[in-house]
Each structure stands twice: as structure tokens, then as C-alpha cells.
Simulated scan of single mutants.
Amino acid sequence: MSVKIFSTVLLILLLNRAISAATSGLHVPNINDNGVILVPSDNQYYLRIDVDGTGREETVEEIAPGQLLVRGSFGQPFPGSKYLLVTYEAGPNGYVAKYSYSEQFNQVLGLPPAVLKTIAG
């Protein structure tokens, strides 16, 4: 199985588990392994996956019982120093996605302060 297919399958499994946990009150594990970071907190979690230049960063928050707000981005490099970046938000007001396709990838994805505090303890 290729690394990209494996990372996609892993992402789908993690998202399904985390969404189920957020809506049912189950515990979401804290993960920091092989380019995958999953950091849960009281009513949300932060997910970041970096594999072979492809990255996904997402925050899922339960804003009301059974109601989620999802915000994130997905980046994919292409031959010729081209890069596709998709940002999205899904919640009670629907789904909105924006994309940019650039000649070079110059954006640095970083962890939000709340995630850094959680990881540090």
C-alpha cells in the first residue's frame, strides 16, 4: 500500500473515531507519531498529518451537543514546484472551501498556541 493511500485511510479512520467520540462523549487518544498529531481537549480536537510533503491540519469543535464545527486545510505538492492548498469550514451554516494553486509553497503550517500548551503539559 502506498504511503499516500495509507495516510488517507489513516486520516479517515481517525476522523471517524474522533467525530464519533465527540458526539458520544468517548475519549479521543493523544497521538504524536510518524507525522500524525492528534491533540484532544475538552470539547474539541486538533489533527495534523504530514506525509511526503502532503499535509492536513484540522480542528473539530463540538459547539453544541451533537453539533460540530470543522475548520482545516489540506496541501498537496505537484511536479514543477506547484502546490495546491485547500482551506475549508463545515458547520451549522454549511460547507465552504477555498483553494489556491501556486508556483511555490511558501506557507509554514504551525501549531496553534492552545495545542502547544496541551502538548507541553
Score class of each variant (00 low, 15 high):
115 V>H: 09
84 L>H: 11
62 E>P: 00
3 V>E: 11
75 G>N: 08
88 Y>A: 02
28 V>D: 01
42 D>V: 02
11 L>W: 11
105 F>A: 04
14 L>W: 06
73 S>Q: 13
33 D>S: 15
33 D>H: 11
99 Y>F: 10
54 T>N: 01
111 L>H: 06
93 N>P: 03
64 A>V: 03
100 S>E: 15
76 Q>A: 11
78 F>N: 12
54 T>M: 02
103 E>Y: 13
117 K>N: 11
44 Q>Y: 07
56 R>D: 03
64 A>E: 10
95 Y>K: 09
94 G>H: 09
85 L>H: 14
45 Y>E: 01
24 S>K: 14
91 G>W: 08
96 V>D: 05
79 P>R: 08
79 P>Y: 09
38 L>W: 09
26 L>M: 13
30 N>G: 09
111 L>F: 00
110 G>Y: 00
15 L>N: 11
16 N>M: 13
22 A>S: 15
109 L>T: 12
77 P>Y: 07
34 N>G: 06
17 R>F: 13
33 D>Q: 14
64 A>S: 07
106 N>Q: 10
82 K>Y: 06
66 G>I: 13
86 V>A: 06
76 Q>G: 03
109 L>P: 10
48 R>M: 04
48 R>Y: 00
21 A>I: 15
41 S>A: 05
83 Y>Q: 07
113 P>T: 12
112 P>S: 05
72 G>N: 04
88 Y>P: 01
56 R>Y: 06
48 R>N: 08
74 F>L: 10
14 L>P: 14
45 Y>K: 01
105 F>G: 03
68 L>W: 08
43 N>V: 04
32 N>Q: 11
29 P>I: 07
54 T>C: 02
66 G>S: 04
